[in-house]
C-alpha cells in the first residue's frame, strides 16, 4: 500500500514538473504538428488514391512523429532529475529504485498519451484519411478512433518501458539527445513495426487483421517492462 502511495507521489511530482513549465507541452505539441505538416507538404497536396496506401502513409507519419516526440520527452524528463542532483535527493529518501522506474514510466506514458490524443486526429485530418474511409467505417468513426488510440497506447507503453532505462543511462553523457536516439531507435524497432501494421489495418479494415501484431506489441511491452523494472536499479544505484 505504501508502495502505491509513494509511486503516486512520484507521478504527481513528475506531472507537476511537466505541466509547470507549460512551454514544454506546447513545444512538444507544436513540434509534433510541424513534423506531421512537413510530411503532408512532402507528399501532398494530392495523397495516394488507394485507401491502403493512404493508411500506410498515415501510419508512418504517426509513428515517426511519436518516436521523435517520445525521445524529446524522455530526454527532458531525465534532464530534470539529473540537474541539481534531484535524483540523488530522491534516492536519499530510501525510496526503492523500482518505484522510481514505475513512476517514470507512468508519468511519461501519460504525457505522451495526452500528446498523441491531440496529434492523431490532426494527422488523420491533414492526410485526408477520414474522407476516403469506407462508408461502413465512417459510420463508426468514434469507435475506430478509440481502437486506434488503444493500439497507440500499448505501443507507447512499450516505448516508455525501454525508453526510461535508456534515457536514464544516456542522460549522463555529453550528447544526450543524439545518443538516446541512436540507442533507442533500434531497440524500438518491433514497437514501430507492429504499431504501424496495426494502424494500417485499423484504417483500412477497421479490424486488427488477426491477433499477431497486437500480440507483438503486448509481448514487447511486457518483456521490456519486466526486464527494465529489474535493471533500473543498476541504472540508479550504479
Amino acid at each position: 500500500m505504501e508502495a502505491f502511495r509513494q509511486i503516486g507521489w512520484l507521478i504527481h511530482k513528475d506531472l507537476a514538473l511537466q505541466f509547470r513549465t507549460k512551454d514544454m507541452l506546447a513545444l512538444i505539441i507544436v513540434f509534433s504538428v510541424l513534423v506531421v505538416l512537413i510530411f503532408c507538404f512532402a507528399f501532398g497536396p494530392i495523397f495516394p488514391e488507394q485507401l491502403e496506401e493512404r493508411g500506410k502513409l498515415a501510419a508512418s507519419v504517426l509513428w515517426g512523429t511519436f518516436l521523435f516526440a517520445g525521445i524529446i520527452a524522455l530526454n527532458r524528463s531525465f534532464d530534470i532529475e539529473r540537474m541539481n542532483g534531484a535524483l540523488h535527493g530522491l534516492r536519499l529518501t530510501g525510496v526503492d529504485a523500482s518505484y522510481l522506474y514505475l513512476s517514470k514510466v507512468v508519468s511519461i506514458f501519460l504525457f505522451l498519451m495526452l500528446l498523441e490524443v491531440v496529434v492523431t486526429p490532426i494527422t488523420l485530418q491533414f492526410l485526408d484519411v477520414l474522407t476516403v474511409l469506407p462508408v461502413a467505417l465512417q459510420a463508426q468513426l468514434p469507435w475506430l478512433l478509440l481502437k486506434l488510440i488503444g493500439v497507440i497506447a500499448i505501443g507507447t507503453l512499450g516505448f516508455c518501458a525501454v525508453g526510461v532505462v535508456v534515457s536514464g543511462i544516456s542522460t549522463n553523457t555529453p550528447g544526450k539527445e543524439s545518443l538516446l536516439s541512436v540507442i533507442l531507435l533500434p531497440l524500438t524497432f518491433p514497437v514501430v513495426m507492429a504499431g504501424a501494421k496495426c494502424t494500417v489495418s485499423l484504417l483500412t479494415t477497421g479490424g486488427l487483421g488477426g491477433n499477431f501484431w497486437i500480440s507483438v506489441l503486448v509481448v514487447y511491452s511486457l518483456v521490456f517492462l519486466a526486464s527494465s523494472y529489474l535493471l533500473f536499479e543498476f541504472v540508479v544505484e550504479g
Binding site: 514538473l17 509547470r20 530534470i80 541539481n84 540523488h88 535527493g89
Partner: peptide, 12 residues
C-alpha cells in the same frame, strides 16, 4: 546531506 547541489527540484 548538504552538498553544493540542492538535491531538489528548482521548478517546484
Amino acid at each position: 546531506l548538504i552538498v553544493h547541489e540542492p538535491l531538489a527540484y528548482l521548478e517546484l
